[in-house]
Amino acid sequence: MSKEHEKYLKDLKNNKIKLRVTRILILVIFIALWEIAGDLKWIDPFLTSTPSRMCKSLVAFYNDGTLLSHIWITCYETILGFTLGTVFGTLIAVILWWCPFGSKVLEPYLVVLNALPKVALAPIIIFWVGNGMTAIIVIALLISIVTTIISVLSGFNEIDKDKIMLMKTFRASKLQILKHLVFPYSVPVLISALKINVGLSWVGVIMGEFLVARKGLGFLIVYGGQIAQLDMVMMSIVILSVIAFLMYEIVAFAQKLLIKNKSFEK
């Protein structure tokens, strides 16, 4: 390895460290300023809460033994809605790719469903499947599935037509084309769909919990607002942010592993 290459790798490592340190410093400074502003009454701590007040609320819920239950229920609903939306969305995209005529027929309907605010369907879903966890999961599923279908199908259709024709000249079946060409070349699209679905699933679950839940972080946000306990509201929002970030990082880590394995195979 040349000295220039070593210097490049060292600079690259140092830049990554600087980036992480800067991000942490920004967060620490923000939290410190928030706390100071609340203590000095620059802002109204009743309306905006403060980190220390949120920590007290967190400790109180933990001591009650209810915090982990609320977190678990919301995470369970989100992971299930995320998984079902991704799996069913990808399967439907495969079916539409397999049948181009059906894809063209359904294209305007998919566009309309994607543009439709899913919150408008929530009351209907509650009547259909009941007032409980099932309704929340279905709402999360519907929010993510249409986006998955559109994004994955677009990725499938962007595959080089010449490569498909080449495989057909070698008498490859449609299943072989899908397995050996379409899926491998659409991995970045699938990963992007996963990243999008992380956020959409959280939106669907929280929206559902706003309407029908008696447990979960969404319920705590609504209940805290109703009883004017904004510390509870802010605490729940911060917990949601942390868990959503962790889910996104898990998907990003899986993407890095996948890219690394593909590079190793090459």
Rank of each mutant, 00 (worst) to 15 (best):
191 I>A: 08
1 M>R: 13
235 M>N: 10
217 L>S: 01
88 F>P: 04
4 E>H: 05
201 S>W: 07
145 I>E: 00
223 Y>A: 05
157 N>S: 09
44 D>R: 07
265 E>I: 14
229 Q>N: 15
43 I>R: 01
11 D>A: 08
51 P>K: 01
190 L>M: 15
106 L>N: 02
61 F>I: 05
30 F>M: 12
229 Q>C: 09
7 K>Y: 10
174 K>D: 15
30 F>P: 00
84 L>M: 08
207 M>Q: 06
191 I>C: 08
212 V>M: 03
49 S>D: 02
249 E>K: 15
227 I>C: 14
41 K>W: 07
201 S>E: 06
212 V>Y: 03
75 C>H: 01
22 T>S: 11
113 L>T: 07
66 T>R: 14
199 G>N: 07
198 V>K: 05
184 P>A: 10
134 T>L: 04
114 N>I: 06
205 V>T: 09
65 G>H: 11
254 A>S: 15
94 V>N: 13
110 L>G: 02
247 M>H: 12
23 R>I: 06
141 L>A: 02
57 S>C: 06
202 W>T: 03
203 V>K: 11
32 A>G: 06
220 L>K: 01
231 D>P: 04
194 L>N: 05
95 I>Q: 12
160 D>G: 01
183 F>V: 14
69 S>M: 11
258 L>E: 10
29 I>E: 04
226 Q>H: 10
127 F>N: 06
22 T>V: 11
34 W>T: 00
117 P>N: 04
108 P>D: 05
114 N>C: 04
128 W>P: 02
101 F>K: 11
230 L>N: 14
231 D>E: 11
93 A>V: 04
74 T>E: 02
118 K>P: 04
176 Q>W: 04
215 K>Q: 12
182 V>W: 01
79 I>P: 03
102 G>F: 12
81 G>E: 02
26 I>P: 05
219 F>M: 03
136 I>F: 00
39 D>M: 11
251 V>M: 07
116 L>S: 12
241 S>N: 11
83 T>G: 01
105 V>S: 10
161 K>N: 12
71 I>Q: 03
212 V>E: 00
15 N>F: 09
28 V>C: 08
133 M>V: 13
30 F>S: 04
215 K>W: 04
150 I>V: 07
173 S>R: 15
58 L>Q: 07
154 S>C: 08
246 L>P: 08
192 S>D: 14
210 F>A: 05
60 A>I: 12
218 G>P: 00
130 G>I: 06
80 L>S: 08
17 I>E: 09
232 M>A: 12
237 I>V: 13
184 P>E: 13
38 G>H: 00
230 L>R: 11
201 S>Y: 08
151 S>C: 05
119 V>Y: 03
187 V>F: 12
202 W>N: 02
180 H>K: 13
91 L>M: 14
188 P>D: 13
254 A>F: 13
237 I>D: 09
185 Y>V: 15
234 M>C: 13
133 M>N: 10
263 S>I: 15
19 L>V: 05
212 V>K: 03
202 W>C: 05
198 V>F: 09
178 L>I: 08
74 T>D: 01
167 M>L: 15
34 W>H: 04
223 Y>T: 06
67 L>C: 03
126 I>F: 02
40 L>G: 03
